[in-house]
Every structure is written in C-alpha cells, then in structure tokens.
C-alpha cells in the first residue's frame, strides 16, 4: 500500500483502561499508518470532532466499561450527521457476543476482542481499503451487511 492511512483510536466514556487501545495504536503504527490516539474519557462529540479535524479514514473504538451499546451507536449517528459516513468504524475491548449483531447493523465493520492478533487487524484494514477502492460500501454510514467477523 503506497498510501498512508490515518486512523483515530479513541476511548469513549468513563473507561480508564487503555492498554488494549495503546497496543492497537502501536501495531497499526508498525504497519505503516498514522495513528492518532485521543487519550481516555472522551465524549462522542469530542471523538467525532477529532475524526473530522484529523481527516481520519478509520475510527477504532475501545470499550471495556460496558457502555458500548450506548456510546458506539451514538458516535456513529454523530459521524453520519456530520457527513463522515464514509469513515470505517471498528471496535475492540469487552463486547459480549450478544451485543454484537446490533453494533454490526449500526455500521461497525469489525469487532476485535481479547486475544486478537495484529495480523488479523491489519488484514481487516487491507480488505476494507480494497473494498473502498472498488467502490463497494464499507463506511459506517454506507448501506451494506458486509463485516469482517
């Protein structure tokens, strides 16, 4: 890939654990991308503003606090209403199987739980970029059932 991707890794809500987010940020950097890390306890509004200002291609949301069912859909709604429906959203952390279908249908394209390898994540990124290049829908606001896992 000759083009560098810009990826925002964010920690929404009252969640003080970011070892996973930092690991992901590091792995994506080592894969050659420019990763912007927001730091802890960000509001959905702050996260969407960061995505806009940084012209991010991807947004990765890390949640270990259990508030994912509320925060992630809210962030996606805000992204879409700000004209950022083309941004590709993925999530990670502790997200129970039972909650996943709803998040996928909301526009999350991949959910990475504990034990995910960085190769798996990078493959997801490459595949989504291929989809984008062939004009297949993949952004969080684009109509598709496609998802990574």
């Amino acid at each position: 890939m000759d083009e560098r991707l810009r990826i925002v890794i964010a920690k929404p809500g009252l969640d003080g654990h970011d070892r996973g987010a930092k690991f992901v940020a590091r792995a994506l950097r080592d894969a050659g991308h420019e990763v912007i890390y927001t730091g802890l306890r960000r509001t959905p509004e702050e996260i969407v503003r960061t995505v806009i200002d940084e012209d991010a291609d991807f947004l990765g949301l890390s949640s270990l606090s259990g508030a994912h069912n509320f925060l992630i859909p809210k962030i996606i709604d805000l992204l879409i209403s700000s004209g950022c429906g083309d941004v590709i959203v993925f999530a990670g952390g502790i997200i129970p199987e039972i909650d996943r279908p709803r998040l996928f249908s909301k526009g999350v394209r991949a959910i990475f739980g504990p034990g995910t390898s960085s190769t798996n994540m990078n493959d997801f990124i490459l595949l989504t970029v291929e989809r984008r290049e062939s004009n297949s829908p993949v952004g969080c606001g684009e109509e598709t059932d496609w998802r990574w896992n």
Binding site: R29, E34, V35, R49, T50
Partner: peptide, 21 residues
C-alpha cells in the same frame, strides 16, 4: 514518523482535554 515503518503515533491531542470542544 517511524523511520522503520513510515507509520506514526500522534499523541499530542491527549493533553488537550478541556479545549477540545
């Protein structure tokens, strides 16, 4: 930017908490 991968970890935003809105 990392001289090895060309990637970068951009973390200056972390400090800007109260003026981000």
């Amino acid at each position: 930017s990392s001289p090895l991968s060309g990637g970068a970890l951009l973390g200056d935003r972390i400090r800007i908490s109260n003026s981000d809105n």
